[in-house]
Amino acid sequence: MPGKTTTSHKQQRPAKQAVSTRDQGTAWHSRVSAGEHILEVDDLGISLAETGRPVVQDVNLNLMAGEILGLVGESGSGKTTVGLALLGHVRRGLVHSGGEVYLYASHSDQPVEMMTLDEASKRSLRGARVSYIPQDPALSLDPGMRVGKQIREVLDVHDYGSADHDRDQRVRSVLREVGLPDDDSYQRRWPHQLSGGQQQRIGIAMAFVMYPDV
């Protein structure tokens, strides 16, 4: 596991103005340029609920805006468990047994501790400020919803922009960002009409469409 972090969540961040959803793209690039601190995991532990046996323990990491961090391990070693913990989520049969996950979200001057947030607050952050891309795109997409609408739904849930036009344009731009066509006919396709690679790119588009911090 990574070594103990040296940056503490107790450090104060410079005050900044709230960022509207319309300006999130510009704000995201600004955070990357500034190298802002966006995530800190301190001594995270997840255990089996019945026995208390650790699944992962003493996980420590720091992440800066624009930084790519790889978590490497064998199958079943807990990589997905750690990834889900960044969303404040623990799968059934497991419990949070220690440590903290601090998200330095762009909408706030202070970090939020994901493991202790109430569910409503977690839902408001998931997909907007912290996103997750599932391993199996075929299982993560709704087979009964057209792919363009699935991306648009993320924007609707998080109230992106000030008009439908803003959301329509953001759907088109994120499709281009992941290397897919942005025309109406492509957006009206069903998931089963796409290849596995195209399905994966739709999942990536859904994760990136709100310019998440992580």
Rank of each mutant, 00 (worst) to 15 (best):
E113D: 10
V112Q: 08
S121N: 12
P191K: 01
E153H: 09
M1G: 08
V157Y: 10
A65Q: 02
A163Y: 05
S8K: 11
E40W: 07
W190P: 04
M115K: 02
A205M: 02
N62S: 15
L44C: 12
G196A: 13
Q200W: 02
W28R: 12
Y186A: 06
Y160L: 04
K122H: 06
S33F: 00
S33E: 00
V174C: 04
G76R: 03
D156S: 13
P134G: 04
Y160G: 11
A49W: 07
P181Q: 06
Y102R: 02
G99A: 04
A15T: 00
A120P: 00
I133V: 15
G127E: 03
A163W: 01
Q12E: 15
Q198K: 05
Y160A: 07
R167C: 02
M206S: 03
M64Q: 08
E119D: 09
H192S: 14
A27F: 05
H96P: 13
A34K: 14
G73T: 02
T21I: 00
E67Y: 00
S131L: 03
R170N: 03
V55K: 01
G78A: 08
R31P: 03
Q198V: 10
S77W: 15
G35V: 13
S140L: 10
D118S: 11
K79A: 13
R31D: 10
V41I: 15
R152N: 12
L61S: 09
P134V: 15
G73M: 08
W28N: 09
K122M: 13
D156P: 14
G93K: 02
D43W: 05
I151Y: 05
A34G: 01
D23R: 13
A49C: 10
G98C: 12
K10E: 07
V101H: 05
I204Y: 04
H37E: 12
T81Q: 00
E50C: 06
Q150L: 04
R22I: 10
L71K: 10
D164G: 11
R123Q: 09
S185E: 14
E50Q: 11
A207T: 05
L94V: 13
E50M: 11
P191V: 03
T81C: 04
Y132N: 01
L194A: 08
Y102N: 08
I151D: 02
P111G: 05
L194K: 09
V41W: 15
T26P: 06
P2A: 14
T26R: 14
P212Q: 04
G144C: 13
R201I: 15
A105G: 08
A49L: 11
A128W: 08
Q24V: 10
P137A: 07
S108M: 14
G93I: 11
L63C: 07
D184P: 00
